[in-house]
Amino acid sequence: MRGRFKDQGQQAAAKRVQFASPFLPYLFLAPQLAIIFVFFYWPSVQAIQSSFYLEDPFGFGSTFVGLTNYADVLKSTEYFGIARFTAIFTALVTFFALAIGLLLAVKADGVIRGNAAYKTLLIWVYAIAPPVAGLIGMMFFNQHIGPLVEFARWFGWDIKVGLDYFDTAFAMIVVAVWKQIPYNFIFFLSGLQGIPVSVREAAAIDCRSELRRFWTVILPLLAPTAFFLLIINVTYALFDTFGIIDVMVKDKAANNPITLVYKVYMDGFRGSDLGGSSAQSVILMVIVLVLTIFQFRFIERRVHYN
């Protein structure tokens, strides 16, 4: 990420660095690789392995069942319902978090007086831990005391989070977007500030419409940042919203919407069904893999870094 902002001279210099021993670079890489191995590769291999077994919760015995766990998951209409919700949730959260983050960044970038205060206030929310964000969100949407519920009642909408599928989905999306806006704001703002003043001035001479200048000059120059944020936001919506969802459904998913990763948790940790849960997490891994390949092959092509 940081490399992108360096100029080419610096990058070329970085490439010329030589190590005295050929093993030295590997030594430097080792801590990072060890972390990736312990926290990613090893659990992944374990998940793939246990997805082929049916195991009792306490680990006394396991039976090889081949692809039965996968078949059970893919046969379930509930699972597809959850997958559908996850897709919609991810799309909406990513879109609104990016759009609002960008809008705020553009506006904050234009503010001259007191801009530090604006920026701090907008970035602030990012420091809130997801479960706390979930708790705050839950209070706003509380059936008995929630101010947003009172507010919606004026318009004749009786929000029932935890009871009505649509209302809970709405509340989850609002809280998830709210939590992610500051992050996107920081990156968009630094991206905007990285655009040279000379370019902006040249554009201003050529075109009077500010909106048009934004679409044709500023946005393409922001594309690398936007692409990076797209990937981060999709991952966020898929995985990091877990804390928010857990707090908002209050430990009882019932007929409320949940995402695929929450289902993995419910079956594996709450239901002690390790085989079925592992199969689901492998399916999730494949989805993320396909999504990442898609993003890099088809979207990144349109992004120009220089």
């Binding site: 998913a253 019932a254 007929n255």
Partner: peptide, 21 residues
């Protein structure tokens, strides 16, 4: 067995009854 999960299914379906789903 797996009764905590069965309860989750019940909670889901009972919720659907009262939300009219």
């Amino acid at each position: 067995g797996f009764y905590p999960q069965i309860r989750e299914i019940m909670e889901r379906e009972y919720g659907r009854i009262f939300s009219g789903e």
